[in-house]
Design a protein around this nucleic acid. Structure first.
Length: 663
RNA sequence: GCCGCAGUAGCUCAGGGGUAGAGCAACGCAUUCGUAAUGCGUGGGUCGGGGGUUCAAAUCCCUCCUGCGGCACCA
């Protein structure tokens, strides 16, 4: 009998009989290990404990509490959920049930919709199945055997799945007691290892194979963890995220609202608009010098959008406008702009351009309207009318790489200024199936951009910038970079984008006079940093949980009196704050200081300046910061100076520091 | 757009065929108080819109709108 050599995580090597199973191996090492063992990792791949090991390998026995077991717990839970559903509603077809971040789901085909109360019923049944602790066993079936079985059971989707498994690949059936499922595995040794730390969280509609032309299925989501503590921690984290919901904060901080007549369009209140304008102001300062800001029309004749290709590609997502007059003879059809680029090309084309003007960087805080599907709308994050911090760089092919890098620096430094200093991902999206332009042009653009991506990676000294490729996800007119930032609670948001476009300038016959006197088509780079200002503001709100840094807070400080004797002095304090450029308010109401502090804290005002008799006599203020319990009493002038300094936007703070350093 | 759920006072929510409710907020009065809710009182609603069933509809049925959770979409 031949032997093989296994290497263990601690580096120890051991000769064993070829074909030894993980279970036997664990038993040979220690009884206690065998008892704990639920699976194994062979050469980096999770495998069933019952699998034979047939060659030299690095082996780790996995016990339930190992991190590797978590995905097994979740996957096993998905199987148990499927069994539970079929037990409760015979005739329900099962489809697929994968592990996802933090949990799992399973998609079912069932005529009657699930009811909210069903989740508890399914959970109860799952606990029963888990308590039975039936072993997971694996069998290899032939295609015919499997299809025959599923046909008899009425599992039409499973038959499709069998057919989709490539010829020559094993077809695995996992049994847990009576119930079985087609599955790629692996699984733990028995259902009992799933434990009790799971919860079904929600259900939803989904489509078979993710295609909306296919049958609609019903999906149930669950979360599962190794321990109850982890489950509770996870559920608490969800609650935390809900507290940060920008729609809730928007109401509490009186920033904006939505109403029925304007689905997907924002009513900005004074507070919200102050933040909005502060962000725009920051962006304008960052663009100064390099970019020229323009403004193109909101409404343009349909023909222009036919030329640009939008009417053909995105008509379903565009708003159209006409004269509303009943007896007007003007029947021209206009489109409300869904993008700024066609307008910018018109500006570029107006007059003769020379190569000496390139790169020509044209920016606009343009409001665009897109008819988003109703189901996609979501607070500020997905709206039908939004402001882009948009720009188009017209340049020569030679200038392209440098422009992309310049934009990269601008984007990354902007995110840092807004407090996103964690991990960041830059993704290169390459040619999609549906596209315009020659393959040569795509080859060229993708080559340049992957070079740029490598340079971006090389520039990331702090290791926080990760790069990736998104095959087939590019725009129809060219490849693009997508900038994904990570917020304070670990969620990723795609905001910035840099898109190379060799299609639009050609469609509009845009050209410049090259050095040799010939007419040459420029390359156009679309870029946005915040993307949608509305959405970016929403992300900021959730990132900071409403506790905005002073420079972004709509009301930066509020002066609160304790007794009416301090009213006059409070007025002096307010005037001093406003004089220093701070957005300040005053609260002279005949209310207890406790109430005032509570109310201004609930609206997330960063600074509360309390003044009573003592402060009025001494010319001081008692400063309390949002979220803090304590307060500092200090001279008025000192407080105003400190706040004014803190309230400077980060770019101006840098400029101030430079100015002070200068001779 | 698709599946499910929901829409009652400014906000959070109760009421499920028989005269619309609570807390907070608002308003009025009293209270001048030292860092997250002072007390008492008063007003407030076509129960998302439209249609139907019924002697009678917030409540049951149909339809549309909007929102929420997913799916699909996201130039």
């Amino acid at each position: 009998m031949s032997e093989i050599t296994l290497t263990f995580p601690d580096g120890a090597k051991r000769s064993v009989r070829k074909g030894i199973t993980g279970k036997e191996l664990a038993e040979s090492i220690a009884k206690s290990l065998a008892k704990r063992a639920v699976a194994m990792v062979v050469d980096g791949r999770l495998a069933d404990l019952a699998d034979p090991i047939t060659a030299d390998a690095a082996v780790k026995i996995v016990s339930r509490t190992d991190p590797e077991a978590l995905e097994l717990i979740r996957h096993d839970a998905a199987h148990v959920m499927a069994e539970a559903v079929q037990a409760l509603w015979p005739g329900t077809q099962v489809t697929i049930g994968p592990v996802i971040e933090n949990g799992f789901f399973y998609d079912f085909a069932k005529a009657e919709p699930f009811h909210p109360d069903d989740l508890a019923k399914i959970e109860a049944k799952m606990h029963e199945i888990i308590a039975r602790n039936a072993p997971f066993t694996k069998e290899f079936w032939s295609r015919e055997q499997a299809k025959d079985f599923f046909r008899k059971k009425g599992e039409l989707f499973k038959i499709e799945l069998v057919d989709a498994i490539p010829e020559g690949e094993d077809l695995k059936i996992y049994k847990q007691g009576e119930w079985l499922d087609l599955c790629r595995g692996p699984h733990m040794t028995s259902t009992g290892h799933i434990g009790k730390a799971f919860k079904l969280t929600k259900f939803a509609g989904s489509y078979w194979r993710g295609d909306h032309n296919n049958a609609q299925l019903q999906r149930i989501y669950g979360t599962a963890w190794a321990t109850e503590q982890e489950l509770t921690a996870y559920l608490r984290q969800i609650e935390e995220a809900e507290k940060r919901d920008h729609r809730k904060l928007g109401r509490e901080m009186d920033l904006f609202h939505f109403q029925e007549e304007g689905p997907g369009t924002v009513f900005w209140h004074a507070n919200g608009w102050t933040i909005f304008q502060e962000i725009v102001g920051y962006m304008r300062r960052r663009l100064k010098g390099d970019y020229r800001e323009v403004n193109a029309p909101q409404l343009l004749d349909k023909s222009l959008w036919e030329t640009s290709g939008h009417w053909g590609w995105f008509r379903e997502n565009m708003f159209m406008a006409q004269s509303a007059g009943e007896d007007t003879e003007d029947e021209r059809v206009f489109a409300i702009k869904p993008m700024n680029c066609p307008g910018h090309i018109q500006i570029f084309k107006h007059g003769l351009r020379s190569y000496r003007e390139l790169p020509l960087r044209m920016s606009e805080f343009g409001i665009v309207h897109r008819y988003e599907p109703s189901g996609a709308l979501h607070g500020l994050m997905r709206v039908r009318a939004f402001t882009q911090d948009d720009a188009h760089v017209f340049c020569t092919p030679e200038q392209m790489a440098e422009e992309c890098l310049k934009i990269n620096d601008l984007i990354l430094s902007t995110y840092a200024d807004f407090g996103f200093d964690g991990e960041m991902t830059v993704k290169l999206s390459t040619r999609p199936e549906q596209r315009v332009g020659s393959d040569e042009a795509w080859d060229h653009a993708e080559r340049i951009m992957s070079d740029v991506l490598k340079q971006i990676e090389a520039r990331s000294h702090n290791q926080k910038i990760r790069t990736a490729i998104n095959p087939g996800e590019g725009a129809f007119y060219g490849p693009k970079f997508e900038y994904v930032l990570r917020d304070a609670i670990g969620r990723d948001w795609q905001c910035g984008t840099t898109q190379v476009d060799f299609n639009l300038p050609e469609r509009f016959d845009a050209f410049y006079i090259a050095a040799d006197g010939s007419k040459t088509t420029p390359v156009m780079i679309h870029r946005a940093i915040c993307g949608s200002m509305e959405r970016f503001l929403g992300i900021l709100l959730e990132n900071y949980a409403g506790h905005l840094p002073l420079w972004l807070a709509p009301v930066q400080a509020v002066v609160c009196t304790i007794v009416s004797d301090a009213d006059a002095y409070a007025g002096t304090v307010l005037a001093a704050l406003q004089q220093a450029g701070l957005r300040a308010q005053i609260d002279l109401r005949n209310e207890k200081i406790n109430l005032k502090v509570r109310e201004h804290s609930l609206t997330k005002t960063p600074v509360i300046l309390v003044v009573g008799k003592r402060e009025a006599e001494e010319g001081k203020v008692s400063m309390r910061r949002l979220g803090g319990q304590d307060q500092r009493v200090m001279p008025l002038a000192e407080a105003v100076a400190a706040l004014a300094e803190e309230a400077l936007p980060p770019d101006l703070k840098r400029a101030g520091a430079r100015a002070r350093l200068a001779p």
